[in-house]
């Protein structure tokens, strides 16, 4: 069993503090949803945990099974068992999915002989057209195909903990269902393979209709302002973020709430 622990994490970009103190613990088999409006710090949280360049960590710690994640390069974090499913998967012209996964498995000391067969089997599970397997990474793929491609890589690499950065953005309902169900399946798996721990970062609750969270956290102004069970997502659906945002910034509750509702007028 694995545990990702985030303690008192403060981080920012270009001298501006965005995360003002995050505490989260994700264990194998658990699904945590972190929900928040635009600008709450969701993508910063994903980027900082995975080591994306451009973010500065100001304070706090991130550990995976007790090992300091923040001291590792991104590739070391990946081989240690962390994985990031990106909101906007990067197009890498001329670089084939197969080659990247073969290198990624080799770094982990895992065999590559079965990679082709695994890719095909996993592609079938999530409705990813086999002909896309021979394309350069994410090049000429639709939004939905890119997210299927991300989910496919997740399934092949089988990490301990995954961060889903807005898996649902740009997805049609069929692709959302295919991808979310595969993640759900990995988080429930029994037997030799450890079940996947999931940190699902999302703006909308529709992802959570397919991917059942055990814990829901509300992120506003760089802080977790409320944590609870799945019922919290329902409450959020009914009341909107403004009901929670006040707690994040009690000194200026009105201004904060109205600013957020402007941002979040869906």
């Amino acid at each position: 069993m694995s545990t990702l622990e985030i303690r008192g994490l403060r981080a920012g970009v270009a001298g501006k503090e965005i995360l003002t103190g995050i505490d989260l613990t994700i264990r194998s088999g658990e699904v945590h949803a972190v929900m928040g409006p635009n600008g709450a710090g969701k993508s910063t949280l994903a980027g900082v945990v995975m080591g994306k360049p451009g973010y500065e960590v100001l304070d706090g710690s991130v550990t995976l099974d007790g090992t300091d994640v923040l001291a590792m390069a991104p590739w070391e974090r990946a081989t240690a068992g962390l994985h990031l499913v990106m909101q906007y998967p990067t197009e890498v012209p001329g670089v084939m999915l197969h080659d990247v996964l073969a290198e990624a498995l080799t770094t982990r000391g895992r065999p590559t002989a079965e990679l082709d067969a695994t890719l095909r089997a996993e592609a079938a599970k999530i409705g990813f057209d086999e002909r896309f397997l021979d394309r350069a990474l994410n090049v000429d793929l639709s939004g939905g195909e890119k997210k299927r491609n991300e989910t496919l890589q997740l399934a092949v690499l089988a990490p301990k903990i995954v961060i889903l950065d807005e898996l649902d953005s740009g997805l049609d309902i069929d692709a959302l269902r295919d991808c979310a169900r595969r993640v759900e399946e990995m988080s429930n798996q029994v037997g030799d393979d450890e079940p996947l721990g999931v940190l699902a970062i999302t703006h909308y609750s529709r992802l959570l209709q397919e991917l059942q969270p055990d814990h829901v956290h509300i992120l506003a102004n760089g802080r977790i302002v409320e944590s609870g069970g799945p019922e919290l997502a329902t409450q959020l659906e009914n009341d909107g973020y403004s009901a929670f945002a006040g707690e994040a910034d009690s000194d200026d509750a009105d201004a904060s709430a109205s600013a957020l509702s402007d941002l979040f007028s869906i």
Binding site: M50, A73, W75, M86, V100, E103, A104, L157
Partner: peptide, 18 residues
């Protein structure tokens, strides 16, 4: 592009080569 490949667990020098 470099970060994308590294985030999959590809070493930086291999990512650069790819």
């Amino acid at each position: 592009q470099r970060f994308y490949l590294e985030s999959r667990g590809v070493r930086p020098e291999v990512a650069e080569r790819l």
